[in-house]
Nucleic acid binder design. Structure first.
Length: 809
RNA sequence: GCCGGGGUGGCGGAACUGGUAGACGCGCUCGGCUUAAAACCGAGUGUCCGACGCGGACGUGGGGGUUCGAGACCCUCCCCCGGCACCA
């Protein structure tokens, strides 16, 4: 008898699938009819680093199991693959090697494509796209122009986060603890003209439309909510007579206005210099402001003690006309709210700390509903608080007072209700080579002029030097840069910045539906047919950036009437991280296990099986080096069991315990994958079935059980399953209907009855299913083991039919 | 500090709706096969006690509670992982 040799089998079936177009899903002839059951299963596209890692293996195997089961259950499944190919790593590698980034990228793509194919994932390769190809980025540029026309892309001089190592600007989202997300260098602040997307216009919809999502992990929604950081309150104007200025502040607590005993400006606030000009203490003021502004936010936050300087000026509190001293302090941030605050030390921890340190007055204006105002800090924690010392508003509850005070201010033009967000606009300019060119021309006469649609794509020019120098390497391509203005024909310059790669990946899921369209980024009927994505799968690291940008793009395109849905991904699943020796697998830690080596040794099927068998797909878990070998042993056992079956004389099929076990396994595997979305326990269930088969190979149901095991393991281990399926005399398992459990066989004739005394198990009996309660109690009472514990008066008997009898004595 | 996820044998984990804790796999032990080893096959494997073929006690991070019955529900505390954090 032959033994299990994965490599030849895997090569063979991969070729068969390719030749048969087994996983090619054509678009419907009439996308308007939604009769067909269709499902879009999407995993986040890989960055082509040339190296497939275990995270990919988990991600794509997960999607593969879902796709196979849906396909075999009669669904039309869209399952594409592509590459997020622009970006710094390829460019840095190119600089190191002296090669062109395109060369490095395409070499990496070829490598990773080869690895993906070796894994045998059921991908529709006719839809492959890569974001660095002009056929793709032409439409990235087209979308950019649509957003520009709609006023959603704009240019602005702004203090930006600058990475001195990568020599480029970063998005806020790419700065982690004051360091560059990619290289870890400390980020600096620079003032530059940059392109921005107006994602802040969509802040409320990004929050509210979460209600449209079918199933997203709670933690992702929470992270996005925190990131958007919506807070409701009021903008209130304070008058500074000496400089004839009205200074607005944002507050979430307008009800505490009577307790505002001082006023604080951020060190970067423009008024600080105005004050300094007129102040005898100008040197001290300027020194503090300069010193504080230079510090990073993180350093400021980490400071043990509050610092600050009195300006010598006063602001008028609009509710009671009281003049309050204006300070400059670095605990107030220029980039949130208005860069100025009213300080209410009695009811805000930070203001309290500051007031204590500098001896400023502290006045209670809010008290607990059932108590007296007490000196010191009192931070409200419910809506039950009552106002005190607040003039005409004294006695109102906090929520009433908020409304009343804002209304009264609004009546005098000194304030209004306001909402503030932590979310900033998306800075998309990058001063690097390997990215999508921004299709804009700067004309001396006309200003900013979009490149006409007919001239797209604006191709990346060839340059000799990609080294970052603080301006885009594209600026060196003079012939490319110097153009005539499309509007007036005069001399003009091309925009030399490229786009953040997150722009490329904010719409790729739309392109897959119509990847070769050269008239438009996609056909609206096709995106409306396939989207929203039914199941999106990827890592938690994209909880904020990619997922929020993709949601924003979808909404913007919806508003432009280019598609008919408001959320791109109905269901999201985040796979857990894989650890080894207690740490996340990473090159720097030296604890990486290469998928390729395992495939060489045990085959793709064993690896696919182990990566899902390891544990719950959404939880972090520890890699076991012996795990894949164990799966290889299981597959060898399955191989043997099938061939033993083939070697035996065919027998009359019979309905035995093994037949029931097979049906139970069908039920369990199907339910786990489809309803529970768990992937480890189905493998265990099939293993149990195989164990049962080998326990009695002569069982009349063995043929059925063997075929069931093969049919059920196919989504996990498609190559061996296909091979065994054809050995069993069938063909095309990839298209064979998913097994259906016979409900009647799931009903057991006898059940195990657990007998407890005082909740402790004392005996177990086989009894006929559906026996009446009295019979169960009588049988239970008859048990010797039970009687030994039935001393003392019986107080109660609990019966759970077909399950358990509990005597309480 | 706030938010989210976790804590079950030597290890990864199972137990879905409160009803047999430890499925399945890894590892380990013993036995078979073998000149031998590997592979493979069979048996065993939570801890402790005992007149070890029957049995008993303990046991899901700690403490308390609800219940006939809790790994699961409630209260409280501890620990680990991830995110956010001077955001007014």
């Amino acid at each position: 008898m032959s033994s299990y040799e994965p490599h030849a089998i895997e090569r063979k079936w991969q070729q068969v699938w390719e030749e048969a177009g087994a996983f090619v899903t054509p678009n419907p002839e009439d996308p308007a009819s939604r009769e067909a059951r269709n499902s879009y299963v999407l995993e986040m596209l890989p960055y082509p680093s040339g190296e497939l890692h275990m995270g990919h293996v988990l991600n794509y195997t997960l999607g593969d199991v879902v796709s196979h089961v849906r396909r075999r259950s009669g669904w039309s499944v869209l399952r594409p693959m592509g590459y997020d190919a622009f970006g710094l790593p390829a460019e840095n590698a190119a600089i190191r090697e002296g090669a062109h980034p395109r060369e490095v990228t395409e070499r990496n793509i070829a490598a990773i494509r080869g690895q993906i194919k070796r894994m045998g994932w059921s991908i529709d390769w006719t839809r492959e796209v890569s974001t660095h190809e002009p056929e793709y980025y032409r439409w990235t540029q087209w979308i950019f122009l649509k957003l520009f026309e709609a006023g959603l892309a704009y240019r602005k001089a702004a203090p930006v986060k600058w990475c001195p190592n990568d020599q480029t600007v970063l998005a806020n989202e790419q700065v982690i603890d004051g360091r560059c997300e990619r290289c870890g260098a400390e980020v600096e602040s620079r003032n530059l003209e940059q392109w921005m997307f107006k994602i802040t216009d969509y802040a409320d919809r990004l929050l509210d439309d979460m209600a449209l999502l079918e199933s997203w992990p709670e933690r992702v929604l929470t992270m996005q909510r925190n990131w958007i950081g919506r807070s409701e309150g009021a903008e209130v104007t304070f008058r500074v007579e000496e400089v004839d200025e009205d200074v607005p502040v944002f507050t979430t607590r307008p009800d505490t206005l009577f307790g505002a005993t001082f006023f604080v400006l951020a060190p970067e606030h423009p008024l600080v210099e105005r004050f300094a000009e007129r102040s005898p203490a100008r040197d001290e003021l300027r020194a503090y402001a300069r010193h504080a502004a230079a510090k990073k936010t993180e350093e400021r936050a980490a400071a043990d003690e509050k610092t600050g300087v009195f300006t010598g000026f006063y602001a008028i509190n609009p509710v009671n006309d009281a003049p309050i001293p204006i300070w400059v302090a670095d605990y107030v941030l220029m980039d949130y709210g208005t860069g100025a605050i009213m300080a209410v030390p009695a009811h805000d921890e930070r203001d309290f700390e500051f007031a204590e340190k500098f001896g400023l007055p502290i006045m209670q204006v809010v008290a607990p509903a059932d108590g007296e105002a007490e000196a010191g800090l009192y931070v409200a924690h419910s809506d039950e608080e009552i106002l005190v010392n607040s003039g005409p508003f004294t006695g109102l509850s906090s929520p009433e007072a908020k409304k009343a005070i804002v209304e009264s201010l609004a009546g005098r033009g000194l304030g209004h209700a306001a909402v503030n967000y932590r979310l900033r606009d998306w800075l998309l300019s990058r001063q690097r080579y390997w990215g999508c060119p921004i299709p804009i021309i700067h004309c001396e006469a006309c200003g900013i002029v979009p490149v006409p649609e007919s001239e797209l794509p604006v191709l990346l020019p060839e340059v000799d030097d990609y080294l970052p120098k603080g301006r885009s390497p594209l600026a060196a391509a003079e012939e490319w840069v110097n153009v005539s203005c499309p509007s007036c024909g005069g001399p003009a310059l091309r925009e030399t910045d490229t786009m953040d790669t997150f722009v490329d990946s904010s719409w790729y899921f739309l392109r897959y539906t119509d990847p070769r369209n050269d008239k438009a980024p996609f056909d609206r009927r096709l995106v409306d047919y396939w989207l929203p994505v039914n199941q999106y799968i990827g890592g938690i690291e994209h909880a904020i950036l990619h997922l929020m940008y993709a949601r924003f793009f979808t909404k913007a395109l919806y508003d432009l009437d280019l598609l008919g849905f408001r959320e791109p991904f109905a269901r999201l699943f985040n796979q857990g991280m894989i650890y080894r020796f207690g740490a996340k697998m990473s090159k720097s830690k030296g604890n990486v296990v290469a998928p390729d080596e395992l495939v060489d040794r045990y085959g793709a099927d064993a690896l696919r099986l182990y990566i899902l068998f390891m544990g719950p797909a959404d939880q972090d878990k520890e890699w076991q080096d012996t795990g894949v070998e164990g799966m290889w042993r299981f597959l060898s056992r399955l191989w043997r069991v099938v061939h033993d079956e083939l070697d035996r004389e065919p027998q009359e099929p019979g309905s035995t315990a093994l037949a029931r076990k097979a049906h139970e396994t069908i039920h369990k595997v199907t339910d786990d994958i489809e309803r529970r979305f768990v992937f480890n326990t189905p493998v265990a269930a099939v293993m149990e079935l195989v164990n049962d088969i080998s326990r009695d190979p002569a069982d009349p149901a063995s043929r059925f059980a063997v075929e069931t095991a093969v049919a059920l393991i196919q989504p996990y281990a498609p190559h061996i399953a296909e091979e065994l399926w054809s050995a069993l005399g069938h063909s095309r398992l990839w298209a064979a209907p998913w097994p259906v459990a016979d409900e009647s066989l799931l009903v057991r004739e006898t059940v195990e009855l657990v007998i407890q005394v005082n909740g402790r198990v004392r005996d177990r009996l086989q009894v006929a299913a559906g026996s009446p309660d009295e019979e169960l109690v009588a049988l239970a009472r008859a048990s010797e083991r039970v009687q030994a514990h039935l001393s003392g008066p019986e107080r109660r008997v609990v019966v759970v039919p077909d399950k358990l009898v509990n005597f309480v004595v």
